[in-house]
Write a protein that binds this DNA or RNA. Structure first.
Length: 375
RNA sequence: GGAGAGGUAGCGAAGUGGCUAAACGCGGCUGACUGUAAAUCAGCUCUCUACGAGUUCGGCAGUUCGAAUCUGCCCCUCUCCA
């Protein structure tokens, strides 16, 4: 029997926010949780010690990228992803569905699977639900994702309907070949912006009894109200005793709105990517550390933050590291942005426990002067 | 003192009669970034009372319809020889 279990500890009195405990084969993840993204078996610039220090409870990695390099067989020989990257916390792998979407130029989607071009050398690749699961079993992550089609926004009702039904068939096919009992498997709710399709997809997936349910196809160009509605429609018929994971979402307001609607897990490249590009999220709003005004600012990036960057270094130093392209800067900035979001999740869990999630959300949105994008 | 090379926008560096307000790189400024083809990408970077105008390519004076580009003188820098 799988030792994978979601325990709903408390439901916020005034919203659908849930405080939970996810037991991932003996490793505990308190939810709601934010998962840093480590596509190539590496959260860019961070070591596994760094991940512990920022209190990352679980990370995400990627089927497609590891399939190409170093190859899932090599990871398997290494003893699985955990041994390979020396990270003993839970790892969730995405299925490659999103890569098929973002490398869309040359893809051909058929019932068997998707033919598309490698971003490395342009060679023709074929990924199917079975292949994706096979790779993920070789990677031996703790949580695998079904292979889905992430459709663009907007898409017609007809296309979305056909695609969603195919994604459901793919979910079933993937589940049929999944044999690891120490790896959980999630189904992914698609359905675009259409309420009936989202609900239908969620019900069908729930009937297949996955270990958890992801909400996919969001933050692909739609506006915020539409995205939040998509989440509501996708979540309405998902079982209460399983975790819900909103894929690819990481702006502060999106995290809070997701939690309010009952989402338990999030992942996003946003904090690490914008960090590498010089943007830091702080209690005083977003700052672009490369600006000259920080060259002589000898205060911490965020005086309220407890991360390695903020405890030990000044904006002037980070500015210098950024301008001189020193890797340490990339590392410290990534650490800060991740810790910033993780701290927001810590606060959210505490608030839910006290039935004050909505107040917490308002407080955060008011306190941190981010723009409508949420960072 | 002699011989040679050279002085181009914040820096480096192309350009050697018109298509040049002047390539390109760096630096600087602005913006983007949401299941990572991203330490990336896009725009701006002489001045102004800006869909037009005004001053530029060490300085001054010329040649020419027209010069950063040709001529003369001057100033300055670098290398080598004394």
């Amino acid at each position: 029997m799988k030792d994978f279990k979601y325990e709903l500890l408390h439901r916020d009195a005034n919203s659908n926010a849930r405080l939970g405990k996810l037991n991932v084969f003996g490793k505990i993840v308190d939810t709601p949780v934010f998962m840093p993204v480590g596509t190539l078996a590496s959260v860019k610039f961070l070591s596994s010690d760094d991940l512990k220090n920022i209190k990352a409870a679980i990370i995400l990695s990627n089927t497609y990228h590891l399939w190409l390099r170093p190859g899932d067989e090599i990871v398997k020989k290494a003893g699985g992803l955990h041994a390979f990257m020396n990270y003993d916390g839970p790892i969730l792998t995405d299925s490659g569905g999103f890569q098929v979407f973002s490398l869309a130029d040359s893809r051909k989607i058929k019932e068997e699977g998707v033919t598309f071009k490698s971003h490395l050398d342009g060679s023709t690749l074929f990924l199917s639900p079975e292949k994706s699961i096979e790779i993920q079993m070789n990677l031996h992550s703790d949580i695998a994702m079904s292979f889905d089609e992430c459709i663009p926004y907007p898409s017609t009702y007809e296309y979305t309907k056909n695609s969603t039904e195919r994604t459901l068939r793919w979910a079933k096919r993937g589940k049929d070949v999944h044999t690891l009992n120490d790896q959980a498997l999630f189904g992914i709710v698609q359905g675009g912006e259409y309420q009936d399709l989202r609900e239908y997809c969620a019900k069908e997936l729930a009937a297949m009894d996955f270990d958890g349910y992801s909400i996919g196809g969001t933050s692909v160009g739609e506006d915020k109200p539409t995205m939040y509605k998509m989440v509501e429609d996708a979540i309405r018929y998902l079982p209460q005793d399983k975790p819900r994971y909103l894929m690819g979402v990481g702006a502060v307001n999106d995290l809070l709105n997701g939690i309010e609607r009952g989402v338990d897990m999030f992942d996003c490249v946003l904090p690490t990517r914008i960090a590498r590009h010089g943007t830091l999220m702080t209690s005083e709003g977003r700052i672009n550390i490369k600006k000259m005004i920080y060259a002589q600012d000898f205060t911490p990036v965020d005086k309220e933050c407890d991360c390695e960057c903020c405890r030990n270094y000044t904006k002037a130093y980070i500015n210098h590291l950024f301008r001189t392209k020193e890797g340490l800067g990339m590392r410290l900035m990534s650490i800060h942005n991740l810790r910033f979001l993780i701290r927001i999740m810590e606060g959210a869990r505490e608030a839910i426990k006290n039935d004050r999630f909505l107040e917490y959300k308002e407080m955060i949105l008011k306190k941190y002067p981010f723009d409508e994008r949420g960072f």
